[in-house]
Design a protein around this nucleic acid. Structure first.
Ligand SMILES: NC(=O)c1ccc[n+]([C@@H]2O[C@H](COP(=O)([O-])OP(=O)(O)OC[C@H]3O[C@@H](n4cnc5c(N)ncnc54)[C@H](O)[C@@H]3O)[C@@H](O)[C@H]2O)c1
Ligand SMILES: NC(=O)c1ccc[n+]([C@@H]2O[C@H](COP(=O)([O-])OP(=O)(O)OC[C@H]3O[C@@H](n4cnc5c(N)ncnc54)[C@H](O)[C@@H]3O)[C@@H](O)[C@H]2O)c1
Lengths: 229, 229
DNA sequence: TGCTAGCTGTGAAACGCATAACAGCGTTCG
DNA sequence: CGAACGCTGTTATGCGTTTCACAGCTAGCA
């Protein structure tokens, strides 16, 4: 097979991409950014794979989804590969995100996303506590949850993070779906029941810590590292 | 095959359990607790499965790892099943956890774990900032990171959460391993490189949000919900 | 200029996990 | 009192992902 071919997979565009592949691509891109920042020009699959903690084959296979090919002698050009992955992951411009629940976790999330990830910005916060609404939090307006529908539609927000107590999470999620949200990141320790066209991701820290604690007392054997994202 | 058999899998004890199974068992147990709290006595596999957002077959298969069998007519006795899962997941008594990095996220984690999960307690915090050490935080002593080795060994802590800036995470992890930690839960957005007998779990919130944002603009098709824990 | 070395891209096999399918059994209802 | 139903435990099947293996290519070097 000649080298100037374009595999069916590639031709198919991003047709069907596994969630796992998406997560790893995001991870690769972040590592590539770091590499570019530190002045690295080229990187081989085995180097990048080591940094991402995957096998080189896995990395190369993942990269088949991206419109870029490395050189057998130099490897991948860091900035070009980063851009190609970016083109694939495709934040069309900047994507607006809402945060519901400005408590301990919510404020920490604000601090975390402040500055980094310019393409993903928290542009609205919601809470039910009168003391926390109608003011600015880290340069972002905070509204009462009852305004969610209006604000979300006006600002075209279709991604939201939920950081409210478990008891309130389902109702908040319903409200957000009503407001037109496409996908959710839920930190509350309840499994949300939502229409199938809404994408939901749970980050369940309690469960994860229990898992970690469980494997702390294993008879020494399982040494897999699992990416939770 | 008679009903009073004990499958090889069961006989083998917890020999080989997939991480995925462990996570789901933890999830089932939490749901069972809620059910017990709300006064439910019996539950069928399809009900519990719906609450956990898995298929009934999956649930029953997972329960094969636990020494308990439900009745075809009543289903599973909630409290008994909860106990059996607990016996399997096996927090021998109470398990001590350390938290490194008392910043925004660290404090939120303190608030979160306070009270709940009595078998999993944060008994020591570490930081490098003099202003944050040598005092009590939520009833838990805070030490300078240089004391980690001593304190961890003295208190027999072998599980730790890392909530320090990415730049410091690897060095902190190395210190903790040196102090005898068995498994880690890392919140910093760097992939840690550690000896293979140390179990590491990454909660990478930035990557996860990017993933969620990515699937917010899908052509409507993928409606899978993936448990990140 | 021909050869070796080492990397990439990718078809094909292997593996693990989830889903489907089935046997046993207690209850219920004809 | 028997038979049909519905649920459990378990075995078998299928699918998606990872791993293996190799062909093609490019530079470097004799
Ligand atoms: N703090 C953590 O580190 C942590 C870790 C894992 C999971 N969580 C989960 O995240 C959630 C929030 O945790 P937290 O520590 O920030 O709690 P918190 O009590 O500090 O904050 C919750 C916030 O949600 C607001 N709220 C309550 N009901 C609401 C509603 N119906 N609509 C809008 N806002 C509402 C409250 O006013 C409050 O500001 C909880 O479900 C918790 O289980 C927290
Ligand atoms: N805040 C969030 O919601 C959030 C979300 C996802 C990930 N994270 C990650 O969690 C980590 C912490 O986030 P944060 O917002 O709490 O940051 P932060 O700056 O508020 O807190 C970091 C803490 O770590 C301490 N620290 C620094 N170097 C240390 C060392 N060598 N040993 C011990 N302690 C040290 C600092 O003194 C500070 O108290 C970061 O890596 C961040 O990327 C945070």
């Amino acid at each position: 097979m000649t080298r100037k071919r374009i595999s069916k997979q590639l031709r198919a565009g991003r047709r069907t991409v596994s969630e796992l592949v998406v997560v790893r691509l995001i991870l690769y891109r972040r590592i590539l950014r770091d590499l570019a920042f530190s002045g690295t020009r080229y990187v081989f699959s085995h180097q990048l794979a080591a940094l991402a903690d995957v096998t080189p084959e896995q990395l190369r296979r993942d990269l088949m989804n991206v419109r870029y090919e490395g050189s057998p002698t130099r490897g991948y050009e860091v900035v070009v590969l980063e851009e190609c992955i970016g083109a694939f992951l495709d934040p069309p411009s900047t994507q607006a995100v809402a945060l519901v629940g400005v408590g301990n976790l919510g404020r920490a999330l604000f601090a975390y996303f402040l500055g980094r990830r310019p393409l993903l910005q928290i542009v609205a916060a919601f809470d039910i506590d009168p003391a926390k609404v109608d003011r600015m939090i880290n340069g972002c307006p905070s509204y009462h949850i009852s305004e969610a529908r209006t604000v979300m539609r006006e600002r075209g927000i279709n991604v939201a993070m939920i950081a409210v107590p478990a008891a309130a999470a389902q109702s908040v999620a319903d409200t957000l779906v009503e407001a037109g949200v496409r996908s959710l990141l839920n930190f509350a320790d309840v499994r949300l029941r939502l229409p199938p066209d809404v994408y939901v991701e749970h980050i369940d820290i309690g469960v994860t810590l229990e898992k970690v604690a469980f494997f702390a007392r294993r008879p020494a054997g399982v040494e897999r590292e699992a990416g939770s994202p």
